[in-house]
């Protein structure tokens, strides 16, 4: 790890074809995932800084906990 790799941000992405609305991502990463009335995720699209390790950890839990493997973490490297 180290400070150099903390530059940039990430977004959580869902594959809407695989998603079956289990709702685990909302429980595991409530900072990033809201849920609609049918149980499908509404995901924060604003990139989260990678330095925000607690949210990054939540996102990793959500990716691991998804029963359909529908989530992935996408790094955003654009610099401001």
């Amino acid at each position: 790890m180290g400070m150099r790799r903390r530059v940039g941000g990430f977004v959580l992405r869902v594959n809407p074809i695989l998603c079956d609305g289990f709702g685990h991502c909302h429980e595991l990463a409530p900072e990033l995932v809201n849920i609609d009335e049918w149980g499908y995720p509404i995901i924060e699209v604003t990139p989260t800084p990678l330095a925000d390790v607690s949210i990054l950890e939540s996102a990793r839990y959500a990716v691991r906990g998804c029963p359909r493997q529908a989530l992935r973490i996408e790094r955003v490297t654009e610099q401001s």
Binding site: G21, G23, E31, N34, E37, W38, G39, E44
Partner: peptide, 30 residues
């Protein structure tokens, strides 16, 4: 399938101070 669970309530999930209501959201299924 999840309409009867409390999970389906449309409250704001975020506890951070980021304004999710203003940001565009990706919706699946709905």
């Amino acid at each position: 399938r999840t309409a009867l669970t409390p999970l389906a309530s449309s409250r704001q999930a975020t506890t951070s101070n980021r304004a999710t209501d203003k940001s565009a959201s990706v919706t699946t299924g709905a």
